[in-house]
Amino acid sequence: MAVSGLGEVYLLNEDIEQEIVSRAQQTPESFGLLYDHYFPKIYNYIYHRVRNTQLAEDLVSETFYKALANIQKFRWRERSFASWLYTIARNQLVDTYRKSTPVLLDESWAESLPSTGDDPEEKVMQHSVKKELLLLIRTLSPDQQDALLLRFQEGLKIKEIAHIMDRNEGAVKALLFRGLKNMRKKMEGGP
């Protein structure tokens, strides 16, 4: 088990995660381990959904406070701890958008996009494509955004996404397919 301190990357297999969750349920101080592991993931998911640093930080804080307060209620049944945590995060997002608070997008997000390769021209192209994709993804329905981000950014399984979104697996697959198809259409200049 490779568990280390704040900020370092470590892997959790299911058995170890169960043990850590169980420990956190008995002694909430152990919640720190789960926090360290999941903070970057939850932050990434929320940030890509809201694209606003201040709002993302608020929602991430809310998510972890709720997780800590309710960890006693979490039970290993059909769902993983990750899907439980993402569900809390998604509920925060849904609540935020239900309030219809206008959110200003950060301008800086596009500058930080990574690009690979040595060729400067290729880098510029990649950067341009990614920036366009990020803009396009925001034109999709919230459910399509969620499905695409959870699948391709967070690497979650279809089953986990189905739990998080309270849909069946077929519906999640359809959301992913339609989301990608819509993005392709828009990239090709469609409506």
Binding site: E29, Y35, L113, L149
Partner: peptide, 27 residues
């Protein structure tokens, strides 16, 4: 190809101060 762009999009970087402050606050 589009999916790959999403995979390759890179992760959002939180500020390290926020991450540690939230951790302390939670504990």
């Amino acid at each position: 190809e589009i999916a790959w762009h999403l995979v390759d999009m890179g992760k959002a970087e939180p500020s390290s101060s926020f991450q540690s402050e939230l951790r302390d606050s939670l504990l």
